[in-house]
Design a binder for these strands. Structure first.
Lengths: 220, 220
DNA sequence: GTCTATATGCGGATAGAC
DNA sequence: GTCTATCCGCATATAGAC
């Protein structure tokens, strides 16, 4: 059947792009592992770069839809009130973690690929890639600003980037991180919760009082 | 002079690897831009991959030396007392930010490259790359654990990774981030301070009390 | 140390039979 | 939809003159 080949190519591409990187993966080894031929990639996707776009699109769309879905529900329930900060962060962070689990090996490959995608492509491609997040990002900034009235737009945006960085790094490195391999391996659900706590505290931090906050917590 | 060519190759490689990625950069365009020839890379560095290692080594060594230097001084001053949390984070975060500025365009290129390095190389290379951070990472984990007695080793390690992720992401995307391009562009020094505050609050967050912390700060 | 020229192989894309 | 065969160019690496 036609769609079987297409799906197979997507799966193998996802894994190889994650393992070796986009440029370093050849269509030859890709199609060889998928049990098909180079021409089929061009038939189904048009080009190698279009294949990458399809790989990303397949996973990103449901993740971002789910994020907005949860945020919608939170806002509907809260009415005019600001949302709880941790709830908003969970709306953002839970979908990738859950989908990752739901998708099994493909999900893990995709997440590794995500953390790497900005390195592997030209500017135009990256721009089109980032555009997929535009709506999501803006919606969450608005929600976060209402929950964090002491911060301005720039503060919230940057902190949101910090959080995305933490998430991306965790997703990418969590599976093969020599630095914390001793007793630190951790259930993904626990990791998600750690990230929510870390992110919520970081997001809520007061600006312009660099020393005071830390000191009390630290001594003793 | 010999070392001029070598330095020139390093500079151009740093920029192109950061722009296009390692695999996508050919020695041909690299040496062409450097005004030399393919053979000179192999003469000076041995191979393309060894050139990448040299590019990283040149910047990483002084950054990590500086980190440990600052941490040494903090620990010497504090004696037996735990260190101030924000001080520890600054010891870790300040060197890359300051070196980045000090090194000008090369520094900016290097930082972009850093965020991308795990995507562009094979496992063996990554392993040798990560080993450069081993000492630094362990030293900071020890210092942080003493400053954060309510956390166990795994908590501290993961939160340190979260912080590294935030830093790497910020370094990589800060220069061309369409998501926050409106009024959010920010002085690097300010960004460093934002990151310290975000990180300190995140690091100090209490474990296992998911809702309580956020809610008070959020409502109203 | 630096270069030109070359060895040798793999890259993406496509034409055209089935 | 799928395949083989092929086009054409670029890749890294190196030999050897200067």
């Amino acid at each position: 059947m036609a769609s079987d080949t297409k799906k197979l190519i997507l799966d193998v591409a996802e894994r190889l792009f994650a393992d070796r990187g986009f440029s370093a993966t050849s269509l030859r080894e890709l199609t060889s592992e998928a049990g098909t031929n180079v021409a089929s990639v061009n038939y189904h996707f048009g080009s190698k770069e279009a294949l990458l776009a399809a790989v990303l699109e397949r996973r990103l769309r449901p993740i971002n839809e789910r994020r907005l879905d949860i945020l919608d529900k939170l806002e509907h329930t809260a009415g005019e009130h600001p949302l709880n900060l941790e709830d908003v962060l969970r709306a953002f962070l839970t979908p990738p973690f859950h989908k990752r689990r739901e998708w099994g090996e493909g999900g893990r490959n995709f997440m590794r690929l995500m953390g790497r995608i900005h390195s592997e492509t030209n500017k135009e491609f990256r721009a089109s890639f980032i555009r997929q997040f535009d709506t999501v990002f803006r919606r969450f900034i608005v929600a976060l600003r209402r929950s964090l009235p002491h911060l301005d737009d720039a503060d919230v945006s940057w902190r949101m980037l910090f959080l995305v960085g933490s998430m991306a790094f965790t997703m990418t490195w969590a599976e093969s991180m020599p630095l914390v391999d001793r007793e630190a391996s951790r259930d993904p659900e626990e990791l998600l919760e750690s990230l929510v706590q870390f992110g919520a505290a970081g997001m809520a931090a007061t600006t312009r009082a660099p020393v005071a906050v830390g000191k009390e917590n630290v001594r003793g």
